[in-house]
Protein backbone atom coordinates (compact mmCIF):
# COMPACT_ATOMS: atom_id res chain seq x y z
CA UNK A 1 0.00 0.00 0.00
CA UNK A 2 2.80 2.32 0.92
CA UNK A 3 4.38 1.90 -2.51
CA UNK A 4 1.20 2.57 -4.38
CA UNK A 5 0.89 6.01 -2.89
CA UNK A 6 4.20 7.19 -4.28
CA UNK A 7 3.16 6.16 -7.76
CA UNK A 8 0.19 8.44 -7.94
CA UNK A 9 0.72 12.14 -8.12
CA UNK A 10 -2.90 13.02 -7.67
CA UNK A 11 -3.84 10.28 -5.20
CA UNK A 12 -3.89 12.20 -1.96
CA UNK A 13 -4.25 15.73 -3.11
CA UNK A 14 -6.37 16.79 -0.15
CA UNK A 15 -4.02 15.12 2.27
CA UNK A 16 -1.04 16.69 0.61
CA UNK A 17 -2.45 20.16 0.55
CA UNK A 18 -3.10 19.88 4.28
CA UNK A 19 0.53 18.93 4.85
CA UNK A 20 1.62 21.77 2.57
CA UNK A 21 -0.47 24.29 4.48
CA UNK A 22 0.78 22.99 7.82
CA UNK A 23 4.39 23.21 6.67
CA UNK A 24 3.97 26.76 5.43
CA UNK A 25 2.17 27.70 8.66
CA UNK A 26 4.94 26.29 10.83
CA UNK A 27 7.69 28.04 8.85
CA UNK A 28 5.84 31.34 9.03
CA UNK A 29 5.46 30.90 12.78
CA UNK A 30 9.19 30.23 13.15
CA UNK A 31 9.98 33.41 11.25
CA UNK A 32 7.67 35.41 13.51
CA UNK A 33 9.56 34.34 16.63
CA UNK A 34 12.32 36.86 15.85
CA UNK A 35 9.76 39.69 15.72
CA UNK A 36 8.04 38.37 18.84
CA UNK A 37 11.34 38.19 20.70
CA UNK A 38 12.38 41.76 19.86
CA UNK A 39 8.93 43.11 20.73
CA UNK A 40 8.80 41.28 24.07
CA UNK A 41 12.35 42.29 24.98
CA UNK A 42 11.47 45.92 24.25
CA UNK A 43 8.21 45.70 26.22
CA UNK A 44 9.79 44.01 29.23
CA UNK A 45 12.75 46.39 29.30
CA UNK A 46 10.37 49.36 29.29
CA UNK A 47 7.96 47.85 31.85
CA UNK A 48 10.79 47.03 34.25
CA UNK A 49 12.97 50.02 33.55
CA UNK A 50 10.48 52.87 33.92
CA UNK A 51 8.95 52.45 37.42
CA UNK A 52 12.10 53.74 39.10
CA UNK A 53 12.08 56.80 36.84
CA UNK A 54 8.71 57.75 38.34
CA UNK A 55 9.26 56.72 41.94
CA UNK A 56 12.74 58.23 42.29
CA UNK A 57 12.45 60.92 39.62
CA UNK A 58 13.89 61.12 36.12
CA UNK A 59 16.28 63.96 36.99
CA UNK A 60 17.47 62.35 40.22
CA UNK A 61 18.37 59.14 38.37
CA UNK A 62 19.70 60.29 35.03
CA UNK A 63 21.44 63.46 36.23
CA UNK A 64 22.30 62.44 39.79
CA UNK A 65 25.95 61.79 40.53
CA UNK A 66 25.64 60.04 43.86
CA UNK A 67 25.13 56.27 43.79
CA UNK A 68 24.36 54.98 47.27
CA UNK A 69 21.64 52.37 46.70
CA UNK A 70 22.09 50.58 50.00
CA UNK A 71 22.58 53.60 52.29
CA UNK A 72 20.06 54.50 54.99
CA UNK A 73 19.05 57.45 52.83
CA UNK A 74 19.64 55.93 49.42
CA UNK A 75 20.43 57.92 46.29
CA UNK A 76 20.31 56.50 42.81
CA UNK A 77 22.18 58.87 40.48
CA UNK A 78 23.55 57.03 37.46
CA UNK A 79 25.04 59.94 35.50
CA UNK A 80 28.61 58.76 36.15
CA UNK A 81 27.66 55.24 35.11
CA UNK A 82 26.25 56.52 31.80
CA UNK A 83 29.26 58.78 31.24
CA UNK A 84 31.65 55.93 32.03
CA UNK A 85 30.04 53.78 29.33
CA UNK A 86 30.22 56.63 26.81
CA UNK A 87 33.78 57.66 27.63
CA UNK A 88 35.00 54.07 27.97
CA UNK A 89 33.47 53.03 24.66
CA UNK A 90 34.83 56.11 22.87
CA UNK A 91 38.35 55.53 24.16
CA UNK A 92 38.20 51.83 23.32
CA UNK A 93 37.10 52.64 19.76
CA UNK A 94 39.79 55.33 19.39
CA UNK A 95 42.37 52.76 20.47
CA UNK A 96 40.98 49.70 18.69
CA UNK A 97 39.84 51.06 15.33
CA UNK A 98 43.24 52.30 14.03
CA UNK A 99 44.87 48.97 14.91
CA UNK A 100 41.93 47.06 13.44
CA UNK A 101 41.83 49.14 10.26
CA UNK A 102 45.58 48.77 9.64
CA UNK A 103 45.26 45.01 10.20
CA UNK A 104 42.38 44.92 7.70
CA UNK A 105 44.57 46.81 5.19
CA UNK A 106 47.28 44.26 5.84
CA UNK A 107 44.97 41.30 5.23
CA UNK A 108 43.22 42.74 2.18
CA UNK A 109 46.08 44.58 0.47
CA UNK A 110 49.67 44.38 1.61
CA UNK A 111 50.09 40.97 3.20
CA UNK A 112 52.12 38.21 1.56
CA UNK A 113 49.87 35.14 1.33
CA UNK A 114 51.84 33.18 3.92
CA UNK A 115 51.61 35.90 6.56
CA UNK A 116 47.92 36.49 5.91
CA UNK A 117 47.40 32.76 6.48
CA UNK A 118 48.74 33.25 10.00
CA UNK A 119 47.05 36.55 10.90
CA UNK A 120 43.57 35.71 9.62
CA UNK A 121 43.03 32.56 11.75
CA UNK A 122 44.52 34.37 14.75
CA UNK A 123 41.90 37.11 14.41
CA UNK A 124 39.14 34.51 14.09
CA UNK A 125 40.33 32.75 17.22
CA UNK A 126 40.49 36.01 19.16
CA UNK A 127 36.80 36.48 18.35
CA UNK A 128 35.99 33.07 19.78
CA UNK A 129 37.70 33.47 23.15
CA UNK A 130 35.03 33.77 25.88
CA UNK A 131 34.78 37.21 27.47
CA UNK A 132 35.37 35.85 30.98
CA UNK A 133 38.84 34.76 29.87
CA UNK A 134 39.61 38.30 28.70
CA UNK A 135 38.41 39.41 32.11
CA UNK A 136 40.61 36.91 33.91
CA UNK A 137 43.70 37.99 31.96
CA UNK A 138 42.88 41.67 32.44
CA UNK A 139 42.64 41.09 36.16
CA UNK A 140 45.86 39.07 36.38
CA UNK A 141 48.09 40.93 33.89
CA UNK A 142 46.72 44.41 33.23
CA UNK A 143 45.67 45.42 36.72
CA UNK A 144 49.07 44.81 38.38
CA UNK A 145 50.74 46.82 35.58
CA UNK A 146 48.22 49.62 36.02
CA UNK A 147 48.81 49.60 39.73
CA UNK A 148 52.55 50.13 39.21
CA UNK A 149 51.79 52.98 36.83
CA UNK A 150 49.32 54.41 39.33
CA UNK A 151 51.82 54.23 42.18
CA UNK A 152 54.39 56.04 40.05
CA UNK A 153 52.00 58.74 38.82
CA UNK A 154 50.19 59.53 42.05
CA UNK A 155 53.12 59.10 44.42
CA UNK A 156 52.73 62.60 45.82
CA UNK A 157 49.00 63.02 45.39
CA UNK A 158 47.04 63.28 48.61
CA UNK A 159 43.57 63.17 47.12
CA UNK A 160 43.92 60.17 44.80
CA UNK A 161 42.16 56.99 45.90
CA UNK A 162 44.30 54.02 44.96
CA UNK A 163 42.42 51.37 43.01
CA UNK A 164 44.94 48.54 42.84
CA UNK A 165 44.93 48.94 39.08
CA UNK A 166 41.24 48.19 38.55
CA UNK A 167 40.38 51.38 36.69
CA UNK A 168 38.86 52.87 33.56
CA UNK A 169 42.09 52.55 31.59
CA UNK A 170 42.36 48.79 32.22
CA UNK A 171 38.77 48.32 31.07
CA UNK A 172 39.36 50.45 27.96
CA UNK A 173 42.34 48.31 26.93
CA UNK A 174 40.33 45.10 27.40
CA UNK A 175 37.44 46.53 25.37
CA UNK A 176 39.75 47.77 22.61
CA UNK A 177 41.18 44.26 22.27
CA UNK A 178 37.71 42.71 22.26
CA UNK A 179 36.41 44.88 19.41
CA UNK A 180 39.44 44.14 17.21
CA UNK A 181 38.06 41.03 15.46
CA UNK A 182 34.77 42.79 14.61
CA UNK A 183 36.54 45.87 13.22
CA UNK A 184 39.11 43.80 11.30
CA UNK A 185 36.63 41.38 9.70
CA UNK A 186 34.09 43.96 8.53
CA UNK A 187 36.69 46.48 7.33
CA UNK A 188 38.55 43.74 5.50
CA UNK A 189 35.50 42.71 3.49
CA UNK A 190 34.73 46.39 2.82
CA UNK A 191 38.26 46.95 1.46
CA UNK A 192 38.08 43.78 -0.61
CA UNK A 193 34.79 44.95 -2.13
CA UNK A 194 36.42 48.07 -3.66
CA UNK A 195 36.59 47.57 -7.46
CA UNK A 196 40.08 46.67 -8.69
CA UNK A 197 39.77 49.29 -11.44
CA UNK A 198 40.01 52.11 -8.88
CA UNK A 199 43.24 50.66 -7.55
CA UNK A 200 44.78 50.14 -10.98
CA UNK A 201 43.79 53.64 -12.07
CA UNK A 202 45.45 55.16 -9.04
CA UNK A 203 48.59 53.08 -9.44
CA UNK A 204 48.73 53.91 -13.15
CA UNK A 205 48.62 57.60 -12.29
CA UNK A 206 51.80 57.11 -10.35
CA UNK A 207 50.54 56.98 -6.78
CA UNK A 208 52.43 54.64 -4.50
CA UNK A 209 50.76 51.57 -3.03
CA UNK A 210 50.30 53.25 0.37
CA UNK A 211 48.94 56.45 -1.23
CA UNK A 212 46.50 54.32 -3.22
CA UNK A 213 45.34 52.51 -0.09
CA UNK A 214 44.81 55.59 2.04
CA UNK A 215 43.64 58.10 -0.60
CA UNK A 216 41.61 55.83 -2.89
CA UNK A 217 40.70 52.46 -1.42
CA UNK A 218 39.81 53.46 2.15
CA UNK A 219 37.65 56.42 1.07
CA UNK A 220 35.87 54.08 -1.36
CA UNK A 221 35.28 51.55 1.42
CA UNK A 222 34.03 54.25 3.78
CA UNK A 223 30.53 52.95 4.40
CA UNK A 224 31.78 49.46 5.21
CA UNK A 225 34.39 50.86 7.57
CA UNK A 226 31.79 53.02 9.30
CA UNK A 227 29.67 49.88 9.72
CA UNK A 228 32.68 48.19 11.30
CA UNK A 229 33.15 51.07 13.73
CA UNK A 230 29.47 51.17 14.67
CA UNK A 231 29.46 47.40 15.28
CA UNK A 232 32.58 47.88 17.38
CA UNK A 233 30.81 50.54 19.42
CA UNK A 234 27.88 48.16 19.96
CA UNK A 235 30.19 45.37 21.05
CA UNK A 236 32.12 47.62 23.44
CA UNK A 237 29.12 49.27 25.06
CA UNK A 238 27.39 45.92 25.61
CA UNK A 239 30.34 43.97 27.01
CA UNK A 240 29.85 43.04 30.63
CA UNK A 241 31.70 40.05 32.03
CA UNK A 242 35.14 40.90 30.71
CA UNK A 243 35.30 44.25 32.46
CA UNK A 244 33.27 43.68 35.61
CA UNK A 245 36.26 42.91 37.80
CA UNK A 246 38.82 44.79 35.70
CA UNK A 247 37.15 48.19 35.96
CA UNK A 248 36.92 48.41 39.74
CA UNK A 249 34.00 48.39 42.08
CA UNK A 250 32.79 51.88 42.80
CA UNK A 251 30.89 54.53 40.86
CA UNK A 252 33.15 57.45 40.01
CA UNK A 253 33.70 60.09 37.37
CA UNK A 254 35.22 58.42 34.28
CA UNK A 255 38.83 59.53 34.69
CA UNK A 256 41.56 57.14 33.50
CA UNK A 257 42.78 56.11 36.95
CA UNK A 258 39.44 56.05 38.72
CA UNK A 259 37.67 52.90 39.73
CA UNK A 260 34.47 53.00 37.65
CA UNK A 261 31.20 51.23 36.91
CA UNK A 262 29.88 50.81 33.36
CA UNK A 263 26.17 50.37 32.56
CA UNK A 264 26.80 46.67 32.08
CA UNK A 265 29.07 46.09 35.05
CA UNK A 266 26.72 47.91 37.44
CA UNK A 267 24.02 45.38 36.53
CA UNK A 268 26.31 42.35 36.77
CA UNK A 269 27.82 43.41 40.07
CA UNK A 270 24.63 44.36 41.92
CA UNK A 271 21.70 42.44 40.44
CA UNK A 272 22.55 39.40 42.56
CA UNK A 273 21.66 41.03 45.86
CA UNK A 274 19.56 44.08 44.88
CA UNK A 275 15.94 44.33 45.90
CA UNK A 276 13.13 46.89 45.85
CA UNK A 277 13.94 50.30 44.36
CA UNK A 278 17.61 49.37 43.96
CA UNK A 279 16.61 46.49 41.69
CA UNK A 280 14.24 48.75 39.74
CA UNK A 281 17.04 51.27 39.16
CA UNK A 282 19.29 48.48 37.89
CA UNK A 283 16.58 47.75 35.34
CA UNK A 284 16.54 51.45 34.46
CA UNK A 285 20.28 51.14 33.79
CA UNK A 286 19.43 48.16 31.57
CA UNK A 287 16.86 50.30 29.77
CA UNK A 288 19.42 53.08 29.17
CA UNK A 289 21.80 50.49 27.69
CA UNK A 290 18.97 49.09 25.58
CA UNK A 291 18.16 52.56 24.23
CA UNK A 292 21.83 53.07 23.30
CA UNK A 293 21.88 49.71 21.51
CA UNK A 294 18.65 50.43 19.61
CA UNK A 295 20.06 53.78 18.45
CA UNK A 296 23.18 51.96 17.23
CA UNK A 297 21.09 49.28 15.49
CA UNK A 298 18.86 51.76 13.74
CA UNK A 299 21.73 53.95 12.58
CA UNK A 300 23.41 50.80 11.32
CA UNK A 301 20.40 49.90 9.17
CA UNK A 302 20.50 53.49 7.87
CA UNK A 303 24.18 53.22 6.94
CA UNK A 304 23.68 49.85 5.25
CA UNK A 305 20.75 51.16 3.24
CA UNK A 306 22.73 54.20 2.13
CA UNK A 307 25.64 51.94 1.21
CA UNK A 308 23.33 49.77 -0.90
CA UNK A 309 22.04 52.79 -2.76
CA UNK A 310 25.56 53.97 -3.49
CA UNK A 311 26.38 50.66 -5.07
CA UNK A 312 23.38 50.66 -7.36
Amino acid sequence: MENQQTFSIIGNRRNKSAVEKAAQGIFTLCAFIAILAVVSITVYMVINGTPALFSVGIKEILLGTSWKPTAAEPSYGILYVILTSIVGTTLAVLLGVPIGLLTAVFLAETAPKKLAAVVKPAVELLAGIPSVIYGLLGLMILNPLMYKLELALFKDSETHQFTGGANLLSAVIVLAIMILPTVINISESAIRAVPASLKSASLALGASEIQTIFKVIIPAAKSGIITAIVLGVGRAIGEAMAITLVSGSSVNMPLPFNSVRFLTTAIVAEMGYASGVHRQVLFTIGLVLFVFIMIINISLTGILKKGDKNHE
Binding site: G238, T264, N297, L300
Partner: peptide
Protein backbone atom coordinates in the same frame (compact mmCIF):
# COMPACT_ATOMS: atom_id res chain seq x y z
CA UNK B 1 11.31 29.88 -0.01
CA UNK B 2 7.89 31.22 0.94
CA UNK B 3 8.00 34.92 1.71
CA UNK B 4 7.50 37.50 -0.97
CA UNK B 5 9.61 40.64 -0.58
CA UNK B 6 7.70 43.26 1.35
CA UNK B 7 7.20 44.86 4.73
CA UNK B 8 6.89 41.56 6.58
CA UNK B 9 10.16 40.17 5.31
CA UNK B 10 11.87 43.47 6.05
CA UNK B 11 10.48 43.37 9.60
CA UNK B 12 11.69 39.81 10.13
CA UNK B 13 15.13 40.58 8.73
CA UNK B 14 15.41 43.78 10.76
CA UNK B 15 14.44 42.02 13.99
CA UNK B 16 16.86 39.17 13.26
CA UNK B 17 19.62 41.76 12.80
CA UNK B 18 18.52 43.54 15.97
CA UNK B 19 18.63 40.30 17.94
CA UNK B 20 22.21 39.68 16.90
CA UNK B 21 23.12 43.21 18.04
CA UNK B 22 21.55 43.06 21.51
CA UNK B 23 24.21 42.54 24.20
CA UNK B 24 24.00 39.36 26.25
CA UNK B 25 23.43 41.22 29.52
CA UNK B 26 20.10 42.50 28.10
CA UNK B 27 19.14 38.94 27.15
CA UNK B 28 20.04 38.00 30.69
CA UNK B 29 17.74 40.65 32.20
CA UNK B 30 14.91 39.73 29.86
Amino acid sequence: EYAKPGKLVRAIEFTTETLSGIPSIIFGLF
